[in-house]
Amino acid sequence: MKLLVPVKRVIDYNVKPRVKADGTGVDLANVKMSMNPFDEIAVEEAIRLKEKGLATEIVAVSIGPAKAQETLRTALAMGADRAILVQTDADVEPLAVAKLLQKIVEEEQPQLVILGKQAIDDDSNQTGQMLGALLGWGQGTFASKVEVDGQAVSVTREVDGGLETVKLNLPAIVTTDLRLNEPRYASLPNIMKAKSKLLAQKTPEDYGVDIAPRLSILKVVEPSKRQAGVKVGSVDELIDKLRETGVVG
């Protein structure tokens, strides 16, 4: 069974994003970039399926600028077998990402595509579900447990009320939630080995997909700041302040 894992290069989750003064976006110049944390979890899950003998090959894909090669090398160093970069400097929206992935799925014929549930830059939470619709496959979103058996996969999902388990026919889509696993760090020898793994370079035109955006961003602003508060010195003072709010009786 072949696995496809889409990984996105995003601002590192430890960096506090700064809105550009001209209101056109977030300043990414000289900012640390990393693999989207949910995608690390997706790569890890794929590797575990391969280690269990349930998968034979892991293909990592990224759609983004030339620098997204670094992200793909990270996936290869973790344990993916080969990689595809669909190179573009444009901001590609989830719908267009899903269309590109659809073409790659048609070429590669994976049985399972494991994506992150959400990219931490656009916070869209769309791509996996969209890909499921385009392919006509089942989707197990926000997964905290994935069990492949034979022709099906059971996915335990983190939902608002707790947990829910669904069973999907293969091929299928899974999107990862935070508690699915803890991603490994790539070891130095594996980082060296990853340098010689295959990384194919493509463009959106190669797949004949129109990536023109449907949403235009008119402006980007900082959210309103909270007023500085007060520090109290004791529990009694805290209770007085709480009562002043009128919410606590």
Binding site: P17, V26, D122, S216, L218, P223
Partner: peptide, 16 residues
């Protein structure tokens, strides 16, 4: 809509 964990608020116009 919020982006970047709510550290920025984007105004977006849909052409669909």
């Amino acid at each position: 809509r919020p982006i970047y964990a709510g550290n920025a608020i984007a105004t977006v116009k849909s052409s669909d």
